[in-house]
Simulated scan of single mutants.
Amino acid sequence: MRAARGHLIRARQAATAISAGEHYQVAARWFHFATLGPNRDRALAAAEADAAMGRALDMMEPRARRIEEPGFAGWLGGPVDAEATVVVVPGLDSSKEEFHDVINALLRRGLTVFAMDGPGQGVLAATTTVRADYHHVIGQVIDALGTESVGLVGLSLGGYYVAESAARETRVAAAATVSGPFRLDWGGLPPPVREILIRRAAGPPGTTRAVPAHPSRRPPARQRPPRLAGSTRRLAYRSTHLTRFIVKTALITGGTSSR
């Protein structure tokens, strides 16, 4: 967080609004990075990232506006008369402050872009939990944006969320997933990913519930899969069967191949 605060100081000392905005943008990213490690101030860092991003947009994209409801929060930018709207969906440990390059690329092409945090993500990570039925969140976003349809871009677990939403929310016109998981095998996940998923699924302290892999062989508490909204098992099952339900344009990238 020291690096982030250093950029806040540089922003206040900057000679131009562009320089100040860029420093606020970098500060937002550094504050987000502070949420990833063993930092007891993770919630504060996420809030600081959100605030710094707001200051950056005030200077660099003054038309951008904040849109938030109980299940999501984000920033809408771009022309009001754009031909299409794109929603950028973060992953398990990412947030809306992480995708400046993708957002700028979309804005340069004349699109309206909504960069969001959903349940268990970014600024909402401290107060909400991840959920398997993310298409309901996307449905709420589309309602709030007041548009007939959207395109989705998602990275990592956000790639799964995008595929799930494309399969089940009819107003999703196109989807692009980047390295989205095809199957969530709890035993095969790296320990840091399991720890983050446990933390993001557990909710407030004292409410953690676990689903054992097998009732007769209960694993240690730190290795049990958390109960997501719906269930971890449903999340794993759905991810292996989503493609048969997607009947719209979808770009799926991962590793060295795309289709």
Rank of each mutant, 00 (worst) to 15 (best):
R2G: 06
A3W: 03
R12V: 04
Q13W: 04
Q13H: 11
G21F: 03
A27S: 12
A28T: 11
W30H: 15
W30S: 09
F33N: 04
A34H: 04
A34K: 02
L36Y: 14
P38W: 02
D41M: 08
L44S: 14
A51Q: 08
A52E: 03
A56K: 00
L57H: 13
M59W: 08
E61P: 00
R63W: 01
E69M: 06
G74C: 11
G77K: 01
V80W: 00
D81N: 06
A82H: 07
T85Q: 02
V89L: 14
S94K: 00
S94V: 01
S94E: 11
K96E: 04
K96A: 06
H100P: 00
A105K: 04
R109W: 03
R109N: 13
G118C: 04
P119S: 07
L124Y: 01
L124S: 07
T127G: 01
T128N: 00
T129H: 02
H135V: 02
H136P: 00
V137R: 02
G139H: 01
Q140V: 00
G146Y: 07
E148L: 02
V150Y: 12
V153W: 14
L155C: 05
G159S: 03
G159L: 07
G159Y: 06
Y161E: 04
V162Y: 05
A163T: 03
E164R: 15
S165M: 13
A166P: 06
A174P: 08
A175V: 09
A175N: 05
A176T: 07
V178L: 15
G180I: 13
F182V: 11
P190N: 06
R194H: 02
R194F: 08
E195T: 13
L197W: 14
I198H: 12
I198M: 12
R199M: 12
P205M: 03
R209L: 09
R209F: 05
R222C: 01
P226D: 03
A229I: 10
A229N: 09
R233V: 13
L235W: 12
Y237N: 10
Y237K: 07
S239N: 10
H241D: 04
L242P: 09
F245C: 03
F245M: 06
A250V: 15
G254C: 01
G255K: 09
